[in-house]
């Protein structure tokens, strides 16, 4: 349904995206993660036609969204701040989107606003930051577009509202809506996504959510005999997550070509206990050494 090919973008002379490519099938949910300033918002803005790529293209249903903006009738972008809606009431915004998006559902919008406890006749400018995000998400999902791009939808909202927004997203995904969600809520993304896109050094790595770390990294709790091998622990194939007394929690490179696992075995440690690898662990493994892009 959505394809990006060889996308590249430079901003102020610095490369932000380089040869980015990915695909998203209909009805699937992808989580976009990366460090602050890595280019997540830039990528989402390119995918929604706000920014033009320097090279490459974004295809929605095999139509270029930059050359044929009409293709975006089934694609909605929800930014992290809905400043553009200041001056509108909920009803006003719904009226406008109702004219643009052919499958806009005003009943769903009204129900969702009521569910969030948001007034429909109040100016969005007077909403709190969290209320604005909830409004924005409700409006975007009400388009019933086939693909919704969300830039940090839980940004600035309280834990209860966060749960409500995530529930809403999961319901939309269950209804067959495709979502691309940029977020730092790794635990939630792990639960609700089918794929994880890691944005790193201007490129996107795609992983299936269920087995994001498979064949890449394993997480172990280790107790060494005698002193811990400092050189080995500082090597590129090992990352120490935690260290309490003699117990080390480690991430170990298990990709082909790495000898870290064999080296550990040869040390004959007192305890080696595998732990489940979470998305957060993969995030730390992949991006832990990166500096902020900005």
């Amino acid at each position: 349904m959505l394809k990006a090919r060889h996308l590249s973008k430079r901003i102020d002379g610095k490369p932000v995206l380089t040869e980015v490519g990915f695909e998203l099938e209909a009805g699937k949910v992808a989580g976009l993660i990366g460090r602050n300033g890595a280019g997540k918002t830039t990528l989402l803005k390119i995918m929604s036609g706000i920014l033009d790529p320097d090279g490459g293209e974004v295809l929605f249903e095999d139509r270029s969204i930059h050359r044929e903006p009409e293709a975006k009738r089934e694609l909605v972008f929800i930014p992290d701040t809905p400043e553009a809606w200041y001056g509108y009431t909920g009803w006003g915004a719904a009226y406008m989107f109702g004219q643009i998006y052919p499958r806009f559902d005003p009943v769903y919008f009204k129900d969702t606003m009521n569910r969030f406890g948001l007034p429909l006749d109040r100016n969005i400018r007077h909403f709190s930051k969290g209320m604005r995000m909830m409004f924005s998400t409700a409006l975007g999902l009400s388009t019933r577009a086939r693909l919704v791009l969300l830039d940090e939808p839980t940004n600035g909202i309280d834990p209860i509202a966060k749960k409500q927004v995530l529930t809403l997203l999961m319901e939309a995904a269950a209804d067959g809506m495709s979502l691309v969600v940029s977020s730092h809520l790794l635990e939630e993304l792990e639960r609700m996504t089918d794929a994880i896109w890691i944005l790193r050094s201007g490129t996107v790595e795609t992983h299936a959510s269920e087995s994001a770390a498979e064949g890449i990294v394993s997480k172990l709790q280790v107790v060494f005999q005698g002193d811990a091998p400092a050189a080995w622990l500082n090597s590129a194939d090992v990352r120490v997550l935690d260290h309490i007394g003699r117990v080390y929690t480690l991430l170990l490179n298990v990709a082909s070509g790495s000898t870290a696992a064999a080296e550990l075995e040869s040390m004959n440690p007192l305890l080696v206990e595998p732990l489940p690898v979470r998305l957060e662990d993969l995030y730390v493994w992949k991006l832990g050494g990166e500096t902020y892009a900005n």
Binding site: S48, G49, P69, V76, A84
Partner: peptide, 15 residues
Amino acid sequence: RNGSQELLFSLPYSR
């Protein structure tokens, strides 16, 4: 300044 341009550019209309 206020993000309206980004909203407009994300809509299914040519610039």
